[in-house]
Design a protein around this nucleic acid. Structure first.
Lengths: 227, 227
DNA sequence: TTTTGTGAACTAGTTCACAGCT
DNA sequence: AGCTGTGAACTAGTTCACAAAA
């Protein structure tokens, strides 16, 4: 019973309308990280219960998340760490590496380019892009070349870029996104504040620092009067 | 039973158990940013409908979000931009400035320290902390002083730090969080990957770059076969 | 036994739709 | 007329609880 579509017997929507929520895929990443650690420390099997205790999650939720993609567990045993890890990497598309370009060679862009945390998981930062004459042709400390953004289309093809990271000032973010989309990139991670428009079929994910900080500020402001 | 018990029947915690979800507070930030822009361009009033069209949100949701905190609107008119903006800044605790310390003067920490986007909204980066001898005593390009993390407790008091940002390697993140919490800081923004433990009463918000990238990678991997 | 996979029940979050104010 | 504030209806997401498998 790998992937039976239940419910409307013949009124099935065209194609598979992706039933997996973003919350689920985010958790898959978290599980994968945990499995990496478990494998390193030589653990062979893990139950959903044990996995759930690592973070504050519910065991049934982990089982449901995994069940979207297959029956990976063994009743009475749990999940084989190595096997589940391999499956998750495949589901997340990490088995073949993911090639990433960073738009904007400012503080943030350069910091992200040299941040090593991704590499192990299968991401490779293949290029930086900027408009500033002085920066173009130089490299980040970690060795990532900074290209003229006018060459974006060309480099995307040559380097098979699949993901673009937006690390430019808010004022030029939409313009840069348009260039990125125009070159056929289908996945964008955005660090600039504010709403950006992308056409259907392009996935935009935003990490908004200001929103996060303000959420913390709200917590502090409420706590003050509340307690 | 990982989390909290089902609560004693009528021994429910005193006061109003905050009914405002994090999704709501995140949206308040978004509304605020929009109001800032509207005020700058001289717009006097805005309806929930018009606000909703800016991002892809529902007008009723905006009204509900705001209604948690008061009746700010005027029927037949909408919301007065300046007034609503002032209210939101107050609700989010931005009217008095928010003082922020950054843990870790690596690429990311330095980039965040010099990122200007916050300042306008009422955040001030007052200190960087690190353990590396060479870095201590120096400043970021923007002028934020790098202190020895052993001085954290002292500086927190002196500078009235309310929020700490974790920008250290994953391996030392929990240790640094413990120091931060030990010094009485109640709000933490975490950029390091992996789960961190904080005591109850401390708010931890994590922005996990790897999780976000993997979510995009998943989208790409699915799209390939799906369409 | 133990632990998965999963329908059913529950909870949280969103949208609808309309009474009521200006 | 126009638009808010809000109960009711709906949708999405989580947790429970148990039959079935090893």
């Amino acid at each position: 019973m790998t992937r039976e579509n239940k419910l409307p017997p013949e009124e099935r929507p065209r194609a598979i309308v992706e039933p997996v929520s973003e919350l689920t895929t985010n958790r898959l990443s978290v599980y994968l990280r945990c499995l990496n650690a478990l494998e390193t420390s030589g653990v062979r099997t893990i139950s959903s219960q044990a996995l759930a205790e690592q973070f504050h999650l519910n065991a049934a939720q982990i089982r449901k998340d995994l069940a979207y993609f297959g029956e990976f567990g063994v009743r009475g045993i749990g999940y084989y760490v190595t096997e589940l890890r391999r499956h998750l990497r495949q589901i997340l598309g990490l088995d073949r590496g993911v090639r990433v370009a960073i738009m904007g060679a400012g503080n943030l862009g350069l910091a992200l380019a040299d941040y090593g945390g991704f590499r192990d998981d299968g991401f490779e930062i293949v290029a930086l892009f900027d408009t500033t004459k002085d920066k173009i042709g130089r490299r980040s400390r970690g060795g990532v070349v900074i290209y003229d953004i006018r060459e974006f289309r060309k480099i995307v093809k040559r380097e098979a870029v699949q993901v673009a990271v937006i690390a430019v000032p808010a004022a030029s973010a939409q313009h840069v996104v348009n260039i990125v989309v125009g070159a056929g990139v289908k996945a964008i991670l955005n660090f600039s504040p504010g709403a950006l428009k992308v056409p259907r079929g392009v996935k935009l994910k935003s990490l908004d620092l200001t929103v996060s900080l303000e959420s913390l500020s709200f917590f502090l402001a409420q706590g003050e009067s509340g307690e």
